[in-house]
Amino acid sequence: MAASLIIEHLTFQYSDGTPPALSDFSLTVPTPSCCAILGPTGSGKTTLLHLLVGSLMKHHPSSIAHGSIMINHVRYEPAPKEVLFPTVGLTLQDPYVQLSGIRETVHSEVALTLELLGTEPSMIDAQVQKTLRELGLYELSHRRPNTLSGGETQRVALATVLVADPLLLLMDEPATALDYGAQAQLKSTLRHLKEKTTLLITDTHIDFVLEVADRFVVLDKGTCILSCSKAEFLAHLPELGNLLPVDDWREVLKLRERRSPHTERVFKALGFT
């Protein structure tokens, strides 16, 4: 089951006098689907994710927020003040930090999540195995977490959250640390996942999310400057040069303007559907 997400006029300041990290942000994400939150460093992407999961309001009680967030038909005004895990799961930008470092094997690292949630001990093993299998990590079950490659660490980090079956999954720049091979693997995992979960993925680049997301939001200094479907996003791409690395894509879009008979198929092959 996937959770619906409706954000209305959300404004957030870390403290009085600082510029808002998010201003008047609204977003409705249908279920199940995948939404990409794009923008350069400091545009408010991470702030948004931490607001949604509840950790931000919890740890910054002096922060100022307005608006409302509705997750899975529960309304929070302005935002949740307690961590909503396992309803909402969040993977951090640095997968090495996501892993606790206090467990000896991948299996027990993933099981830690369920132990923390107080899951019935006899249920834990089966649930962990199922998650590891789904993410293609079963072979790594007995490896030490600190001996994994970057791509493997990223997927184990995802497993530590997915094992609790979150209804809304937030991922902070999951593609950043990965080479292309590992990215491709993660992409196929996420395409599968978005069939049953609501996904929010942030990125500073567009290549990765273009092949995964259905909806695109572009943030600039806390303000939403674009929130649209993939087709509209592509149409606006040439104007986003100062926020996202789109130079290459701009050239690709010029090809489209030529309207040769097969360009649409080229775009499909490139992930523009």
Partner: peptide
């Protein structure tokens, strides 16, 4: 584990399609 720049990829696909068109093959690329 390398990825081509998007423009290079686009051009590759186009030329592959044109080649297929010439030999009269299907459009799946």
């Amino acid at each position: 584990g390398l990825r081509l720049p998007p423009l290079v990829r686009a051009k590759r696909i186009i030329s592959a399609m044109e080649k297929k068109r010439e030999v009269g093959g299907d459009d799946v690329v």
